[in-house]
């Protein structure tokens, strides 16, 4: 049919429209930054005691991990060049995962005592309960 042919011609010309090849130098630059950050985070954890960074260690490690994650997401996964909706979906998923974590953590301390006082040795797991 003619309309299909017309569509075909236009897409054949516009194929570059939906492919976005990443330049090789950019891929390599991202990779070496990632390696650098990995080495840095290991070195940081080695030096925690020497630099007395214990209380910051968690935040430094997770911060570096997040930086690495962002590099992977934006460049390797092309999110920087992707459609807005895909971006929204992906980051919304982190929002919901965060929501799950935050609301669950809100009061685990409250009932922790009850959980801890559960008889440990008397009731071995995976046996028929005599309820």
């Amino acid at each position: 049919m003619t309309n299909h042919d017309a569509n075909h011609d236009s897409t054949a010309e516009d194929h570059a429209y939906f492919s976005h090849p990443m330049p090789v130098w950019m891929l390599l630059a991202i990779f070496f930054s990632l390696v650098f950050l990995t080495v840095m985070t290991v070195v940081m954890s080695e030096l925690t005691d020497a630099l007395q960074l214990q209380q910051w260690e968690l935040w430094i490690s997770m911060g570096i991990a997040t930086l690495k994650a962002m590099l992977v997401i934006f460049f390797f996964m092309h999110v920087l060049y992707d459609k807005g909706f895909n971006r929204l979906m992906f980051f919304a998923s982190f929002l919901f995962a965060g929501l799950f974590i935050a609301l669950t953590l809100l009061d685990t301390y409250q009932y922790r005592q009850d959980v801890s006082s559960f008889p440990k040795s008397e009731l071995p797991a995976r046996q028929v309960g005599d309820k």
């Binding site: 685990t108 959980v115 559960f118 008889p119 440990k120």
Partner: peptide, 15 residues
């Protein structure tokens, strides 16, 4: 027997 939900192994059933 992971012990994530099982209080007998130190897990958290409310979780």
């Amino acid at each position: 027997g992971l012990g994530i939900f099982d209080p007998a192994l130190g897990g958290d059933p409310v979780l």
